[in-house]
């Protein structure tokens, strides 16, 4: 039988899906045990026990100095920045993207500019943001927004242009103005595609978040892992990285679920 025709059944598929995770964990456990056997004070690959202690310390014990539960206060600070930036980016991208996609005049006016801006490496702008906006929240939110907005705008504009031309003609023959076409034909069809674009931009958004926090911050998940790096505190860094990953996965999952719930027609119509 050809390989392209070999399909795993559900049980096999589940096992196959779990296997890479299990292998990584196994490799870690073996490596950690070997290093700890040679040197019980090794910090590079701490045992799961040590990591567990660190999680309890970070998540369930109040910090001596501030009285905060650090994992949660870091998470709140980071997610606040991330969501603020995502909200700003989405709003800007929706307006500009739909305008570029729908109106040839706006496309001629803005599309080359947005295309150029999207090629500016956002991290190269970070010093400028720090100089102009200071080291507070604004500069971090601005970095994330600048990082993902051009991508969202271009993606949305392309999705709008991809809508079958027949639909726009049809709407006109039903007497719709440009505004009504945007409101009743384009926006509802773009919204689920926007959610997909947002999912794709979650990765870059987290990248810019961690980068901004690493360079200048006094709270946040990125700030914490770069802070404890000085003490080789792998027992804190590893669970933080896992936690950041989990947050991103959950947001991705939530966006998929929400899209299916709000736009039931979308999956079938694609």
């Amino acid at each position: 039988m050809r390989l392209i025709n070999v399909r795993p059944d559900r049980g096999t598929a589940l096992v196959l899906a779990i296997l890479p995770f299990a292998l990584v964990i196994l490799a870690y456990v073996l490596g950690s045990a070997e290093r700890l056997a040679l040197n019980p004070d090794d910090k590079l690959l701490p045992s799961f026990g040590t990591i567990g202690d660190a999680i309890v310390k970070m998540a369930f014990t109040a910090d001596n100095r501030t009285g905060d539960y650090l994992l949660w206060s870091d998470t709140a600070a980071s997610l606040g920045r991330l969501l603020a930036a995502l909200a700003i980016s989405t709003a800007v991208a929706l307006v500009v993207g739909v305008l570029i996609g729908m109106l040839p005049a706006v496309r001629a006016f803005l599309a080359p500019f947005v295309g150029m801006v999207s090629m500016v490496p956002p991290l190269a702008l970070l010093p400028i943001l720090f100089i102009v906006m200071g080291l507070g929240e604004e500069s971090k939110i601005a970095l994330i927004a600048i990082g993902i907005t051009p991508f969202l705008i271009r993606d949305l504009a392309m999705r709008v242009e991809e809508l079958p031309h027949e639909q726009l003609i049809k709407a006109q023959t039903m007497g719709a103005s440009s505004w009504l076409i945007a409101l009743r034909v384009v926006l509802p069809q773009i919204a689920p595609r926007l959610m997909d674009a947002l999912r794709l931009s979650l990765g870059p958004a987290f990248l810019f978040l961690i980068a901004a926090e690493a360079i200048a911050s006094d709270s946040g998940l990125g700030y914490r892992i770069f802070l404890v790096r000085r003490y080789l505190a792998m027992d804190v860094i590893l669970p933080y990285v896992a936690w950041i990953t989990l947050l991103a996965v959950l947001m991705d999952f939530a966006l998929v679920k929400a899209r299916r719930l709000i736009f039931p027609w979308f999956g079938a119509a694609k």
Partner: peptide, 28 residues
């Protein structure tokens, strides 16, 4: 430009995928 005096049915893509049957007709 196209207006409400002239209705049209294309071979494909004539209906709006994000609206139900009732929604599509009601939209007019």
């Amino acid at each position: 430009e196209p207006d409400a005096d002239r209705g049209v049915v294309f071979q494909r893509y004539s209906v709006f995928p994000h609206l139900t049957v009732l929604g599509n007709v009601l939209l007019a």
